[in-house]
Amino acid sequence: MKNNGWIVWLGTLALLLLHQDFWFWDNYETEVFGFMPIGLAYHAGFSIVAALWWGAVMSFAWPHHLEALAEEQEEPISTQRP
């Protein structure tokens, strides 16, 4: 994550921009597969892309340093009143 962090943030920002699909905003005529309005089909596809994106992110930006920290010995912090 440390070295590839900027790719994660940049890619997520690009997806946030793609989410604002103003180009299908008033399209009520096109139906994908004969039943699904294009505005809905686009966002269904967006969900699949989001899954693939996070799948990819985990392969190139997995936080190994945090995982190593979790493997270390537990050091309970008391958050109770002394």
Binding site: T12, L15, L16, H19, D21, G39, Y42, H43, A44, F46, S47, A50, A51, W53
Partner: peptide, 9 residues
Amino acid sequence: GLMASISGL
């Protein structure tokens, strides 16, 4: 789009 696809991301 309002709730579901954005929530997925």
